[in-house]
Design a protein around this nucleic acid. Sequence first.
DNA 1: CTCGTGTGCAACAAAAGGTTGCGCTTCGGG
DNA 2: CCCGAAGCGCAACCTTTTGTTGCACACGAG
Lengths: 116, 116
Amino acid sequence: MSTAVDDELWSAIGDPIRRTMIDLLLSDGPGTATSLSRRLPVTRQAVSKHLAVLDRVGLIHAESAGRERHYQVDEAQLARAVAQLSAVGSTWDARLRRIKRIAEAIERSRITKEGE
Amino acid sequence: MSTAVDDELWSAIGDPIRRTMIDLLLSDGPGTATSLSRRLPVTRQAVSKHLAVLDRVGLIHAESAGRERHYQVDEAQLARAVAQLSAVGSTWDARLRRIKRIAEAIERSRITKEGE
DNA sequence: CTCGTGTGCAACAAAAGGTTGCGCTTCGGG
DNA sequence: CCCGAAGCGCAACCTTTTGTTGCACACGAG
């Protein structure tokens, strides 16, 4: 059902810090480990590790500019991740609906039997 | 933007094993730690810990039956989690769209300037 | 009652996430 | 030119999470 690549994408966006980092990169545009750490409750080194994780799964990519290293979101890969989210969401949604239907059917048949 | 409760829900469903467990509970109905461990690549004890995590955030709840302990999905809470997923997904989707619009606008103005 | 099966608890190993400290580039003002 | 400030990466270390094994206990069927 789920592939290793999908699992990596999931665990990448499963972390609250990493989700916030993606939010920041999307809203403020490209940023560095230092600029991001100023808006997050962790040190630059922790941010740097998260950036490495996101880079490894391809959700962001870096560009060196002098002594700075600018990261920005890879739009295509993030779109893939969003698709994953909605896929799992709709699967669960469908199953919840089906369970509800079955439960209602059982309820109906129980009432019918009682009426016999 | 994101609350502590939301983060707990996210990290709960962020784990591939836990996502699979929810899938199994949805598709096969209520199950025990032992029955789930037979369909997963980890030991019963590991499954038991994951069940404890899912229980703590309210995504599942248990019911004792003799010496067995049956777990099943809490539909309302899972529906909440699905809503979270789609919320983040649509937020990122909207921002990706906006970035694309801006990029196109810049592209247009650049061409205009070149034409002057 | 006794044996098989399902559970929980404890101790331990490995991985993830976080911090501090250090040393190496690179930019920019004297 | 040069030297300090700013940005970055690497390494050592700590804590939490995830996984394992081992053991003791409870329940149900023969």
